[in-house]
Design a protein around this nucleic acid. Structure first.
Lengths: 229, 229
DNA sequence: CGACGGATTGATCGTGCTCAAATCATGTGG
DNA sequence: CCACATGATTTGAGCACGATCAATCCGTCG
């Protein structure tokens, strides 16, 4: 891994406006501390790192999509998060990764050596603050997701998912989901059939429209927000 | 709040052996940075802070127990964590608390002004590292809990709960649970009846013994570990 | 002793899961 | 360009696990 086509380069990302998003945090680090980000690519379904492996790099999605999950011994899977262009993932405070990360589709990432980040954090307070803020951002998401998994019904979960994806990847009015129904189910603590049924029902109510199973247009966001408990 | 019986004092906690637990992290901060921890008490059922309130303090449980939760508008509740003696809670990277915290029983805490911590983190790398590590520790717990809430069945959840509490509060072979069945249910994403039935079944199998509903002795931890998927 | 909240146990219900089949989308080779 | 294969998605039928509703039982504290 990482021994092919490693092009050192300064990050091509522009300084962003909102200084709280994960993407900005990555920029704060690469921009201020003079660190070098490397670009790398993963094919569809390729593993990026495994649970309990030593954490050597921090990643930022440039294009594509990533799922991060835990498995039980019998194959049950819980996806903790999806990472989309701009998102940072793989950052650990401890020595190892606690979830597995895989490319959902062909994906390219920028990456930084974890050691460089730790070093930079030792001298630059802003870097240290950024690392903390990124982990806190993941915690916030996990706390919201625990509420969803523990207490929301199927339709509420799906409505929540649609609004989250709409917010994060809708460019036009349309969103192009990179993940299959099983991934959505494993993210929401449901089966793929239950996800499919919920989406069909929303379509029949005119709340969304399909053009292909993964091309979805939201026609009534407010109704979805009301459904999301 | 906080205007009665505020006794400034240096923390009475001794330097701990394992430098990774939340309790130690609190000590690193109070011990090294010369910060002053204040002691304070909450009565049973008293709110410590509310969701979305400004985060002004960081807390460490001295005695008692705390539940931290989110509510849906119709009253459904998801408890994200229980905090027991030694545990640190209420630490935020952002400006506000994202869950509500309440004392489950009469509870006393030590607390630090968040501003002092931020300041200390600006000059002392170890403090900054500790804050990050504490948030990362909460994230680790949340990731494990998402797997439980999304993919484990009722018996697996209860077995997991018993092992977690055994690890965290068993002094002798006995554990004294501070929380009621409803709290346990709201932590595990179950109803209180389902929790009660699972515990009764474990008792009838001889895996645990009661002396009062909240005094539990684990008689076969390995069996519980096997049940916890 | 009585009252109250917490816990247990029982009976029934319903949401979401399982198993199965049909349909659709995508890509490949003839 | 079409035929086919493959995997993803949809839809249906029946079931099971945990929820709900309800009735004791128990422990604690006045």
């Amino acid at each position: 891994m990482l021994n092919q086509s490693l092009r050192s380069q300064t990050p091509a990302v522009k300084a962003p406006s909102n200084s709280c998003s994960p993407a900005d945090q990555f920029y704060v680090v690469t921009g201020h501390a003079g660190l070098v980000a490397t670009e790398f690519s993963y094919k569809k379904e390729e593993e990026i790192y495994g649970e309990d492996e030593p954490s050597e790099y921090v990643y930022q999605v440039v294009s594509g999509a990533v799922r991060s999950y835990k498995l039980l011994s019998d194959g049950r899977r819980q996806i903790g998060a999806f990472y989309l262009p701009g998102d940072v993932f793989g950052l650990e405070s401890g020595p190892t990764h606690r979830l597995t990360a895989e490319a959902i589709i062909d994906t390219s990432v920028r990456l930084l050596k974890r050691r460089s980040l730790e070093q930079a954090a030792g001298t630059d307070v802003n870097v240290a603050r950024s690392l903390w803020a990124m982990t806190a951002g993941e915690l916030r998401h996990a706390e919201d997701h625990m509420l969803l998994l523990g207490r929301k019904n199927a339709m509420e979960r799906v409505a929540n998912f649609l609004l989250e994806m709409d917010r994060r990847l809708a460019v036009t009015g349309m969103m192009a989901l990179p993940m299959c129904r099983r991934d959505i189910g494993d993210y929401l603590g449901l089966t793929l059939e239950t996800v499919s049924r919920a989406l069909s029902q929303l379509q029949s109510q005119g709340i969304l429209g399909f053009s292909g199973a993964r091309q979805i247009e939201l026609r009534n966001r407010q109704h979805l927000r009301n459904m999301d408990a």
